[in-house]
């Protein structure tokens, strides 16, 4: 009995896209709702009180700006790693994918410094509604970054064997991982002004 999944590398005749791409986009749609629920909670908490702290008075804007730059750069290196595969340049793929992973780790290190600084000053999720929503949203986003690192590290190391046996499917996998990674970047693009700047 074969349990092969069809239309992984060629488009499905009905949808016009590969099943893998359709699957990733449906997953991202559910992710929009997950973060959307938290953003909705943030709006409710914020508009429900009169004395909400301004982000730049309690959070570290320069560090968060640095993290914005890191994440945007990692999005570019991610898309470049996929483009390198399209150009059949495997060594360039490895280079860009390695940079992407290193940038993701750098993001987490900066975030770690921010968290450590907050804990040193006894600011915990239980401190106030602001810190509660701050830690929940940035924490969930951080978990997504960790997830991206795991998937990208798999594609860089053991998963890259597939390049020799089925390059088309492998390129599709990198594209799918890229879609997820750009989404993580996209969430941060909204998180950054909402929590830090307003």
């Amino acid at each position: 009995m074969s349990a092969e999944i069809h239309y992984i590398s060629e488009p499905h005749p009905v949808s016009g896209v590969t099943n893998s791409k359709l699957g990733v986009w449906l997953f991202l749609a559910s992710e929009v709702m997950l973060f959307g629920g938290l953003f909705s909670a943030y709006i409710l908490l914020r508009t429900g009180v009169t004395d909400w702290p301004r982000g730049h008075e309690v959070l570290n804007v320069p560090l968060a700006t640095l993290n914005t730059v890191i994440l945007i750069t990692s999005s570019v290196t991610m898309v470049m790693s996929w483009a390198s595969l399209e150009l059949k340049k495997f060594s360039k793929f490895r280079l860009y994918m390695t940079i992407t992973i290193l940038l993701a780790i750098a993001f987490l290190v900066v975030k770690g410094f921010e968290y450590a600084h907050k804990f040193d000053h006894h600011h915990f999720p239980s401190t106030s509604n602001f810190y509660a929503i701050y830690f929940v949203i940035t924490g969930l986003h951080g978990l997504h970054v960790i997830g991206g690192i795991i998937v990208n590290a798999y594609l860089l190391l053991p998963g890259s064997k597939m390049w020799k046996t089925n390059p088309e499917q492998f390129t599709g996998r990198v594209e799918a991982a890229g879609l997820y990674w750009h989404f993580v970047d996209l969430v941060w693009i909204f998180l950054f002004p909402a929590l830090y700047l307003l």
Binding site: S15, G16, W25, A29, V32, M33, S75, V79, G178
Partner: peptide, 22 residues
């Protein structure tokens, strides 16, 4: 990011439809 890195500017209708719904 969505239009260029995620290729939405040249993506098939079904993906756009899913996103409009989202």
């Amino acid at each position: 990011v969505a239009a260029f890195f995620m290729h939405l500017s040249t993506e098939k209708k079904i993906i756009i439809f899913i996103l409009i719904l989202t």
